[in-house]
């Protein structure tokens, strides 16, 4: 029974000591300790948040850089492509021009050649006719020295004529 009957002196001292301890610790210990822990936690949180923000900023910057690079690359490609097409077109144009010019020249040359040929032919024809006439004259003079031969020739000629 002694165990479960609280003695008033102990109750009194415990209550007194406990209230004293509570008040003393609240002022002396818990306030600064909890305050410091809270503050530290807050500063850690803040630091972590800041780090997170910095990380995000970093990622953003990297992404931006990448973007810029990509853009620049694309632009370069564009420019190169444009230049290539331009070059191609110029080349084609030039080729075509050259072809046209060449064909024109060839045409002209051909005409010229034709003309020259005609002139030359005409000349050749003249000369050939003159020459043949002379030859014929000479031949005839030679042949027609003899009377029989003349007659034979005429007869021959006549034969040709008849055939025609």
């Amino acid at each position: 029974m002694e165990l479960v009957t609280p003695s008033i002196g102990l109750v009194f001292w415990t209550a007194l000591a406990f209230i004293f301890l509570l008040l003393l610790l609240r002022k002396l210990a818990w306030k600064p300790i909890l305050g410091a822990i809270h503050e530290r936690e807050q500063s850690i949180d803040e630091a972590l948040n800041k780090a997170e923000l910095a990380k995000q900023e970093m990622a953003r910057l990297t992404a931006q850089n990448q973007d810029l690079m990509q853009q620049a690359r694309a632009e370069r490609d564009e420019i190169l492509k444009e230049a290539k097409t331009l070059k191609d077109s110029i080349l084609n144009e030039a080729k075509k021009q050259a072809q046209i010019e060449g064909s024109k020249l060839i045409e002209k040359a051909k005409i010229e050649i034709e003309n020259q040929k005609k002139v030359a032919l005409a000349e050749v024809k003249d000369q050939v006719s003159t020459l043949s006439l002379e030859i014929a004259e000479r031949v005839l003079r030679n042949q027609l020295d003899d009377k029989t031969k003349q007659e034979a020739l005429v007869a021959n000629l006549l034969k040709d004529v008849e055939l025609n």
Binding site: F20, L28, A29, I33, A36
Partner: peptide, 16 residues
């Protein structure tokens, strides 16, 4: 109680 006050008092000081 004395022990608690000494221990937590000193801790509070080191927190400060």
């Amino acid at each position: 109680i004395l022990l608690i006050v000494i221990i937590f008092g000193s801790i509070a000081v080191s927190y400060k």
